[in-house]
Design a protein around this nucleic acid. Structure first.
Lengths: 227, 227
DNA sequence: ACAAAAGTGTTCGATATACACCCATGT
DNA sequence: ACATGGGTGTATATCGAACACTTTTGT
């Protein structure tokens, strides 16, 4: 069988890792050590190698930085403009990950200077990475509405207030407590445990756990359809 | 500045072109002339060249087959498994296009044997192209619910029945005529013309035109949120 | 006792759904 | 005259939105 006559291209993956820390939605950035954009912050990522699929490359890069296992990781978009990288065109397949911050550790040994940045305080980034983050955020905000992706940001057991807070932080709006609870419990995706979250100087809260190990699509009612 | 030390990869684009013909949703396929999968049907597409962005490559491939101008063309997903192509790993960035069938002509000269296939009657396809079509169809069905993408499938002037038919064909369900019309007119995206569609042996129907030249996002009411 | 978050129902308005008949035209 | 798709309105059910007070704990 013939070999390719195709042009060949540099292909990378970039990962937008979302997490919630101190009731704020944050993104993982690493400091670049080499040109181009040496010293600038950038998304974690790197080249796709010949022996791995693109998905595998994304997972490998994510694990290199965070040692996270069993993450929600979804392909976002492929950015293929000619001018993204000053060295020449690099096609990057962007992914986003959503994970509770207890479930990963930044790799200090790596010397990568990984750091979580609040989304309001993203520094100037290398390449078109700030565009990629915008896109990822848009996707996340959208998905929160019709999937259970939000529970990826919570620990295994959580209170209803904690989950409400997660929605509020992503959607950037206050939600009504009674309506939130009513709806959340109606969805039949939470299991009450008999435990309570104690520790604060206040009434202990009931802990719930998410019944599914996977992110679910909730039944979607179209805007235009169905009639 | 240093050159890359990256592995380089074969990168292609593939296009899922949707159109409606004879009240059926169809997809454009071309017959392959060379190995691998010589003689099999496949999505139109081809290699990304070094001088063009990935988006430009998609548009170029689409125009090569159809001579269509000003199409709705959206990136779908990037497929990067190792085994997609028997010659070795080819990364393909899939796109989908949505266009009324009057607005393009299949290129007979090209000898590509382009042909529109009804979605119920897709023949066995080369590579993972049938997976790509499934994915595109899912996206289209989803987008129909919260955008005006459906009007891309209609001529400039159309009747309400024609647009209802387009929704029905995509969603694979009958819709209620009165509810459809009420909602469609409430949305304020259609302009009535004074013309009527004559020709059938029946009452002439009022023609409408879509007020926007672009596909709109309709306000989206989340399922889970807002409260 | 007090501060702070947990927990709990009802009412109202908007929107989706279900449903059947007359109209205008070409043959 | 008749066959065919065009065109129209109302009643009901469901769901989202707004809204305030009592409870439980730690200090």
């Amino acid at each position: 069988m013939r070999r390719f006559t195709f042009d060949r291209h540099a292909v990378t993956v970039d990962i937008v890792l979302f997490t919630i820390e101190k009731e704020t939605l944050k993104v993982l950035l690493v400091k670049r050590e080499h040109a181009p954009f040496s010293g600038k912050w950038a998304l974690p990522g790197g080249a796709v190698e010949g022996y791995e699929s693109v998905d595998e490359a994304a997972l490998r890069q994510l694990q290199k930085e965070t040692h996270v296992g069993n993450v929600y990781l979804e392909q976002l978009y492929t950015f293929g403009d000619l001018s993204r990288d000053p060295r020449g065109r690099v096609i990057t397949v962007a992914y986003y990950a959503v994970v509770h911050h207890d479930r990963f550790q930044l790799d200090a040994l790596n010397g990568h200077g990984g750091h979580l940045f609040s989304l309001n305080r993203i520094p100037p980034l290398a390449f078109d990475h700030s565009k990629i983050i915008d896109y990822a955020l848009e996707r996340l905000r959208h998905k929160v509405n019709y999937t259970t992706i939000c529970f990826q940001l919570l620990p295994e057991k959580f209170t209803l207030s904690e989950s409400q807070k997660a929605y509020e932080v992503i959607l950037r709006q206050k939600l009504d407590k009674r309506n939130f609870r009513k709806k959340m419990l109606q969805l039949n995706i939470l299991k009450g445990t008999r435990e309570k979250r104690r520790g604060g100087a206040r009434r202990p809260a009931q802990l719930y756990s998410f019944t599914e190990s996977k992110v679910l699509k909730l039944q979607e009612r179209g805007i235009l359809i169905p009639f």
